[in-house]
């Protein structure tokens, strides 16, 4: 099923690569990806969509939250958002 995630990320060299790398290493293909500035220049917002089983979604969200430069991970369409 298609899921859209919204990730707040420290705007640092390499941070985007680590998010993308995490999804790739765990076998997910990112279908769409947008990186946008926020009102805080040190923080960017990443919006990405991917195909993922509902069961596996919680795990990839938790793994994303382990990345040191990640500030927040949300799944706006779903109660799993936190």
């Amino acid at each position: 099923m298609n899921h859209t995630l919204s990730i707040l990320l420290q705007n640092e060299a390499g941070a985007l690569v680590r998010v993308a790398g995490l999804f790739a290493a765990r076998g997910y293909n990112i279908d769409t990806l947008t990186v946008a500035a926020t009102h805080d220049p040190a923080v960017s917002r990443l919006t990405l969509s991917l195909q993922c089983d509902d069961d596996a979604l919680g795990q990839i969200l938790q793994q994303t939250r382990k990345l040191v430069d990640v500030l927040q991970v949300a799944h706006p369409a779903n109660a799993l958002a936190a």
């Binding site: 060299a13 390499g14 690569v17 790398g21 290493a25 040191v68």
Partner: peptide, 16 residues
């Protein structure tokens, strides 16, 4: 190294 290690360490810093 930040790419290579970023994929396998807890974290990597490239100090510029």
């Amino acid at each position: 190294i930040s790419n290579i290690m970023g994929a396998c360490a807890k974290h990597v810093f490239l100090v510029t």
